[in-house]
Amino acid sequence: MTERISRINPDGLHPTPGYHHITVVEAGRTAHLAGQCPLDGSGTLVGPGDLDAQIDQVAANALAALAAVGAEPAHVVRSVIYVVDDGTAPLGAAWRRLTGSVIGPAFTTASTLLGVARLGFAGQLVEVDLTAALPD
Protein backbone atom coordinates (compact mmCIF):
# COMPACT_ATOMS: atom_id res chain seq x y z
CA MET A 1 0.00 0.00 0.00
CA THR A 2 2.78 2.45 0.78
CA GLU A 3 3.72 2.32 -2.92
CA ARG A 4 0.58 4.46 -3.47
CA ILE A 5 2.25 7.15 -1.35
CA SER A 6 5.12 9.20 -2.70
CA ARG A 7 6.97 11.89 -0.78
CA ILE A 8 8.76 14.69 -2.62
CA ASN A 9 11.19 17.48 -1.79
CA PRO A 10 11.34 19.59 -4.96
CA ASP A 11 14.51 21.31 -6.07
CA GLY A 12 14.49 24.94 -5.08
CA LEU A 13 12.74 24.41 -1.72
CA HIS A 14 14.64 24.45 1.56
CA PRO A 15 15.98 21.22 3.10
CA THR A 16 13.80 19.76 5.85
CA PRO A 17 14.61 18.06 9.16
CA GLY A 18 13.03 14.79 8.05
CA TYR A 19 9.62 15.67 6.61
CA HIS A 20 8.76 16.14 2.92
CA HIS A 21 7.26 19.24 1.34
CA ILE A 22 4.77 17.22 -0.72
CA THR A 23 2.99 13.91 -0.23
CA VAL A 24 1.05 12.42 -3.14
CA VAL A 25 -1.50 9.66 -2.63
CA GLU A 26 -2.90 7.72 -5.57
CA ALA A 27 -6.66 7.05 -5.39
CA GLY A 28 -7.83 5.22 -2.29
CA ARG A 29 -9.46 5.57 1.11
CA THR A 30 -8.21 7.96 3.77
CA ALA A 31 -8.72 8.25 7.51
CA HIS A 32 -8.74 11.63 9.21
CA LEU A 33 -7.92 11.21 12.89
CA ALA A 34 -9.17 13.66 15.46
CA GLY A 35 -6.38 15.50 17.21
CA GLN A 36 -4.74 13.00 19.54
CA CYS A 37 -4.41 14.40 23.06
CA PRO A 38 -2.32 13.29 26.05
CA LEU A 39 -5.27 11.61 27.78
CA ASP A 40 -5.23 8.07 29.14
CA GLY A 41 -8.06 5.58 28.57
CA SER A 42 -10.10 7.07 31.40
CA GLY A 43 -9.79 10.61 29.98
CA THR A 44 -7.25 11.82 32.55
CA LEU A 45 -4.51 14.19 31.40
CA VAL A 46 -1.13 12.42 31.51
CA GLY A 47 1.99 14.26 32.67
CA PRO A 48 0.74 17.72 33.62
CA GLY A 49 3.61 20.10 32.84
CA ASP A 50 5.75 17.29 31.33
CA LEU A 51 6.01 17.65 27.55
CA ASP A 52 7.89 14.36 27.10
CA ALA A 53 5.29 12.34 29.04
CA GLN A 54 2.50 13.99 27.08
CA ILE A 55 4.20 13.29 23.75
CA ASP A 56 4.61 9.64 24.73
CA GLN A 57 0.87 9.39 25.51
CA VAL A 58 -0.08 11.18 22.29
CA ALA A 59 2.13 8.77 20.33
CA ALA A 60 0.54 5.75 22.03
CA ASN A 61 -2.95 7.11 21.38
CA ALA A 62 -2.17 7.85 17.72
CA LEU A 63 -0.74 4.35 17.25
CA ALA A 64 -3.94 2.85 18.69
CA ALA A 65 -6.14 5.07 16.50
CA LEU A 66 -4.19 4.13 13.37
CA ALA A 67 -4.35 0.42 14.25
CA ALA A 68 -8.13 0.70 14.67
CA VAL A 69 -8.41 1.44 10.94
CA GLY A 70 -5.73 -1.03 9.86
CA ALA A 71 -3.05 1.61 9.34
CA GLU A 72 0.50 2.14 10.56
CA PRO A 73 2.57 5.32 10.97
CA ALA A 74 4.05 4.80 7.48
CA HIS A 75 0.53 5.25 6.05
CA VAL A 76 0.28 8.81 7.40
CA VAL A 77 0.25 11.37 4.60
CA ARG A 78 -0.26 14.60 6.58
CA SER A 79 0.47 15.67 10.13
CA VAL A 80 -0.08 18.82 12.12
CA ILE A 81 1.60 19.10 15.51
CA TYR A 82 0.45 21.69 18.02
CA VAL A 83 2.74 22.51 20.96
CA VAL A 84 2.01 25.06 23.65
CA ASP A 85 4.91 27.47 23.29
CA ASP A 86 5.53 29.95 26.09
CA GLY A 87 8.78 31.16 24.59
CA THR A 88 10.96 28.40 26.06
CA ALA A 89 11.47 26.88 22.59
CA PRO A 90 9.85 23.45 23.09
CA LEU A 91 9.06 23.08 19.39
CA GLY A 92 12.35 21.50 18.33
CA ALA A 93 12.35 19.20 21.36
CA ALA A 94 8.79 18.10 20.58
CA TRP A 95 9.72 17.40 16.95
CA ARG A 96 12.73 15.30 17.95
CA ARG A 97 10.76 13.28 20.52
CA LEU A 98 7.89 12.64 18.10
CA THR A 99 10.17 11.61 15.23
CA GLY A 100 11.94 9.22 17.62
CA SER A 101 8.69 7.76 18.96
CA VAL A 102 6.63 4.71 17.98
CA ILE A 103 4.88 6.89 15.39
CA GLY A 104 8.08 8.47 14.07
CA PRO A 105 7.52 7.35 10.45
CA ALA A 106 4.33 9.46 10.40
CA PHE A 107 6.47 12.60 10.35
CA THR A 108 8.44 11.83 7.19
CA THR A 109 5.43 13.07 5.25
CA ALA A 110 3.96 16.54 4.74
CA SER A 111 4.07 18.02 8.25
CA THR A 112 3.36 21.28 10.01
CA LEU A 113 4.63 22.16 13.49
CA LEU A 114 2.87 25.02 15.28
CA GLY A 115 3.46 26.84 18.54
CA VAL A 116 0.16 27.78 20.13
CA ALA A 117 -0.95 29.66 23.24
CA ARG A 118 -3.37 27.01 24.52
CA LEU A 119 -4.96 23.67 23.68
CA GLY A 120 -8.32 22.14 24.60
CA PHE A 121 -7.61 20.64 28.03
CA ALA A 122 -6.20 22.52 31.00
CA GLY A 123 -2.51 21.60 31.25
CA GLN A 124 -2.36 20.08 27.76
CA LEU A 125 0.96 20.84 26.04
CA VAL A 126 0.74 18.88 22.77
CA GLU A 127 -1.75 17.54 20.21
CA VAL A 128 -1.18 15.68 16.94
CA ASP A 129 -3.58 15.66 13.98
CA LEU A 130 -2.98 12.88 11.42
CA THR A 131 -4.38 11.87 8.03
CA ALA A 132 -3.59 8.39 6.73
CA ALA A 133 -3.99 6.68 3.37
CA LEU A 134 -5.56 3.35 4.30
CA PRO A 135 -4.10 0.09 3.03
CA ASP A 136 -6.13 -1.83 0.43
Rank of each mutant, 00 (worst) to 15 (best):
H75Q: 14
L134F: 08
E72A: 14
L45F: 07
V76W: 05
Q36V: 13
A106R: 09
F107M: 05
L33P: 08
A68F: 10
G100P: 04
A71K: 03
G120H: 14
T131Q: 15
I103V: 15
G92Q: 05
T99F: 00
P15L: 14
Y19R: 11
A68Q: 09
V84P: 02
T2A: 10
D86I: 05
R78D: 11
D40R: 04
A59L: 08
A122E: 14
A133K: 02
V102Y: 00
V80E: 11
V69M: 07
A65K: 01
G120D: 15
A67H: 10
T23D: 07
R78E: 12
A94G: 00
A60E: 05
D129C: 14
D129E: 12
T23C: 03
P135L: 09
S6R: 15
H14T: 15
L119M: 06
A133W: 03
L51G: 03
T109K: 01
A106N: 09
P17E: 09
E3C: 11
A93C: 10
H75D: 15
G12T: 04
V76G: 07
E26V: 12
V80C: 04
T16F: 00
L39F: 03
M1V: 14
R78T: 04
V69R: 02
T109Y: 02
H75V: 07
F121N: 12
P38M: 04
T2Y: 04
V58E: 10
R97Q: 09
V25A: 15
H20M: 00
E26Q: 15
A68M: 00
D85V: 05
V84I: 00
L125M: 08
A31V: 11
G115Q: 00
I5Q: 06
V46F: 02
D50Y: 04
T109V: 08
G100T: 01
L119P: 04
R97S: 01
V102W: 06
T30Q: 14
I8G: 06
P73V: 06
A89D: 14
D11C: 07
G87Q: 03
Q36E: 14
I8W: 11
G70V: 02
G47K: 03
G123T: 03
A65T: 13
R29G: 12
E72C: 07
G12A: 05
T88D: 11
D40C: 04
L91Y: 08
G120C: 12
D129N: 13
H20N: 11
P17V: 08
P48S: 09
Y19G: 07
G87Y: 01
I81P: 01
V58L: 00
T131Y: 10
T2N: 12
G43K: 10
T108G: 12
A110H: 13
L125P: 02
T112W: 07
G92R: 00
A106W: 10
A122P: 11
M1G: 15
A59N: 05
P90F: 06
R29M: 14
R4K: 10
T44E: 10
G104D: 09
A132I: 04
T23M: 03
A59W: 00
A106P: 07
R4D: 06
H20V: 07
A67C: 07
L66Y: 00
A31S: 13
V69C: 05
A110D: 13
L125E: 05
D136V: 12
T16Y: 04
L130K: 00
I5H: 07
L125W: 09
H32I: 15
A59I: 03
V46T: 08
L134M: 11
T23K: 05
G70C: 01
P38F: 02
F107N: 08
